[in-house]
Design a protein around this nucleic acid. Structure first.
Lengths: 151, 151
DNA sequence: GTGAGATAAGTTGATATCAACCTATATCTC
DNA sequence: GAGATATAGGTTGATATCAACTTATCTCAC
């Protein structure tokens, strides 16, 4: 009756490194974030700020919960991410008329203008990215990422 | 000669929301991080700490640059991530004998033991995850994520 | 062996991320 | 309508993330 070895071998390391979907997703997310941050830096937005502001660009300004769901982001993270955008006058958060618990998040005029400037920059970079990924079937990849985001 | 409209329509929003690989990758990364953080919480590690410590579990302790590359993580992020692990006595960082610019990052005995406890937990969760993703071809998904991480 | 350039890592400051806890408002039940 | 419950958000504290800048060390050319 020997106790199980209290340590694990290098083989386990290789298994995690090669197969862990979480690790691979974090890697991909970091690399893509850096890439789009670089692309969008001249415009003055990060990749996350761009996605967030895009989520706000709709006829009826969404409430926080909707946006957090759309971005698969914690509610409280959204609160924090809004702070710099509100500070720069790109976004406003105002209490909903019908339900005073809700906050309607809306782009300001200058937010919409900045987003309009960022959009073609994103478009060009994204087209280039898809081109480089042709061998990996971007459509399928998107589906897979979507499935992961639904967990 | 009209100026281009300074704002963009809702259609652009939908295009970004549906197609942006960066957004989809961030969504997936956040969801998976939360999931594995939950799974590993009883053990006392986050998903990132688990991956990081796994990367250290090898015959010759790696130097920081190697680990940062493996995780597709900024060098300075790695410095920050090591801090709590060193503080808990799970990891040590020591100057390399041959090249004094380098830091060898190694697991301590208790780090190896904690990792050994975390491994079967990860394994079970990862098997379950792959099962849920059968329809999305996890192998292919991993390849795609790997390609994204190489940008 | 000295100085120039390259390489490895740390520091600072800003933003992002989440859990745990808290407050305000709405809804439901009686 | 009063109290219980549910829902929407905010706050705090810890960790993660990176850019810009700095320090220490090494290597190479001479």
């Amino acid at each position: 009756m020997t106790e199980p070895a209290p340590e694990i071998g290098h083989a386990a390391t290789l298994r995690v490194r090669d197969s862990c979907l979480c690790l691979h997703a974090q890697r991909a997310a970091r690399a893509l974030a850096r890439h789009f941050d670089d692309i969008l830096r001249p415009v003055g937005l990060t990749n996350g700020q761009f996605s967030l502001m895009m989520a706000l660009n709709r006829p009826e300004p969404p409430v926080m919960g909707q946006v957090a769901d759309l971005l698969a982001m914690d509610r409280t993270t959204l609160t924090a991410c809004l702070k710099p955008l509100v500070g720069r006058g790109l976004v406003t958060a105002s209490v909903d008329d019908r339900d005073h618990r809700r906050r309607r998040i809306a782009l300001t005029r200058s937010g919409r203008q900045l987003l309009a400037a960022a959009y073609p920059v994103w478009q060009a970079a994204h087209d280039a990215l898809e081109g480089r990924l042709r061998a990996h079937d971007p459509e399928r990849l998107r589906d897979g990422l979507l499935a992961l985001g639904r967990l």
